[in-house]
Every structure is written in structure tokens, then in C-alpha cells.
Amino acid sequence: MKWKQNVSFEEGDKLIAVINNNKIPIPESDRYIAELMLAGISEDDMLLDIVSKKLEGDELKAGLRLAQFVEDYSLLLEEGEKSSVFET
């Protein structure tokens, strides 16, 4: 999962995503996921792993959590690779 090329961020008390001059504040509940990605973690499996640790090791809940993130920020995210879903 990656941010689009033209997305930038303003960090501070609040984390704000900027795309095409539109500012989108990232709520605290989503901030940690956004910062993981900003730190360069883009591998879906790695994200799942980290988020599931935060959710008491529940990988399925982590999947739902990340799916929610994708739904909320679809405008800011690159399209996922098919290969990440299907075995090639």
C-alpha cells in the first residue's frame, strides 16, 4: 500500500495530507498507519503484521482495520497490485 506520488504531508500536532492543494487531516486513530507508510513500510503483509500486533495478534481484525483505512483514503492511495492478491 503506497501513497500516490503527488501526496505530501504536513506534520505537527496533527498530520495533514495534501493532494492537489486539498488538505485532508488524518485523525489520531489513523495516524499510526499513515506514519508507518511514511516511514517506508509499503508491503501489505508487513503492514498486516504490525497492525495485528497492535490488535492483540488478531490478523483478521487487522485486515479489516487496514481495509477501512484504504476505503477512507482511497483518493490518496495508489491502486493496489493484482499480484498482491493473486498468486502468480
Partner: peptide
């Protein structure tokens, strides 16, 4: 339909929970 905008990404994360 909304999910089709990020279909691969959502499928990646949602696949297993949905099956369960």
C-alpha cells in the same frame, strides 16, 4: 461499487476476514 475504486487493495486486506 465504492470498493471497486481500490479493489485490489481492499481485497488484499479483506479477503481472509470475509471468508471467515
Amino acid at each position: 461499487s465504492e470498493w471497486s475504486k481500490s479493489d485490489n487493495q481492499i481485497a488484499k486486506f479483506m479477503g481472509r476476514p470475509l471468508e471467515v
